[in-house]
Amino acid sequence: MQESRLIVVKRRLTVKWEDFVLAIRLLERAQIWIAILLLPLAAFMLLPLVYLFNHAFKPLHELFLFPPTFIVREPTTSNFAELLALSESTIVPVSRYIFNSIVVTFLSTVAMVVTSAMCAYPLSKHPFPGSKIVLGLIMLALLFATEAVAIPRFIVIQSLGIMNTYLGHVLPLVALPVGVFLLKQFMDQIPNDLMEAAKIDGAREFTIFMRIVIPLVQPAIATISILAFQSAWGNTETSTLFMQEDAMKTLPFYMSTLTSGLANSVARQGAAAAGALIMFIPSLVVFIVSQRKVIATMAHSGIK
C-alpha cells in the first residue's frame, strides 16, 4: 500500500522534472540570469528546512559530531522512537498532545472557514444596514495582533468558564478577520446577475450560498483553509494561557517545553528535532496541495 503510494509520488516528481527541463530550454537570456541570481537565495531560504529534515533522522552520535554535518549519513528513526519513549515516563504521553492538536486544528479550521464564508457573503452581496460598520471593524482588526491583548482575552475566557476545555482552544481562534476579508474580496467578483437569476428561479438565500457562491469561491476557500490551518496548528497561545491541565495542551506547547533551554543542554535534541518535523510536514503538505488556488486568490487581496 505504502509502496504503491511511493511509486505514484515518484511518477509525479519525474513528470515535474521533465516540465522543468522543458521550461529551462524555453528561457530567454534575461530570465536565465534571474533564475541563476535567485538560485542561491532559494537555497538559503530552503536550507534550514532541508536541515530540519536531515536532523530529525540523524542517529545520536551524528547530532553532536564535530565538524557538524549537514546531510544525514545513516538515517534512522530512533529520534521518533525517543520522542514517544520520552513521554512514557511522564504523566501525559506525546500521543495525547498530538491527538489534542489534531482535534483542535480540525475543529477550528472548519469553524474558521465556515464562519468566515458565512460572514463574507452578506458583506459582499447584501447592502444591509450596518454592513459598512461591520466591514470597517473587520478591516481594522486585520492589523491587530491578538497577542497584544492576551490579558483581557484571558479574563474573557476565564469568565466564560471554558478553560481546560476544547472550546477554550477553538473559540478564541474562530474570528479570523483575514479570512472574511479575502473571501469578501473574492465574492465581489461574482456577478450579481447570477444571484438574481437564481432568485427568479425560486432559490432561497441558503441555496444560493451553498450552490452558487461557495463553488465559485473555491480558490479563496482553499487559501483561507491554509491560513486557518496554520494559525491553529502552530498556536501556543491557547495552551499556555487558557489550559492549566497538561492533558489539554497541544503539540506546539509540548515542543516549546522541549526546546526551552535547548541552547544550553544536549539532552532531548533528537526528540526535539523529530517533533519539529512532525510540526512542519502537515503545513507543507497542505500548502503544496493547494498552492495554485492560493496564488489565484491573492490577486484579489487588494485593499482599496
Binding site: 522543468f20 531560504m45 528546512l49 536541515y51 502552530g234 506546539p252 526546546t259 535547548l262 512542519f280
Partner: peptide, 27 residues
Amino acid sequence: LPSTLRTWYALAMYAPSLSAGVAMTVV
C-alpha cells in the same frame, strides 16, 4: 520567470513562513 519555474521559486520563498515558530527553534 516562466510559469513552471515561477511556481518552484515562489514555493521556495513561501515555505519558510509555513514553519511554525516553535518548531524552528530546534533548528
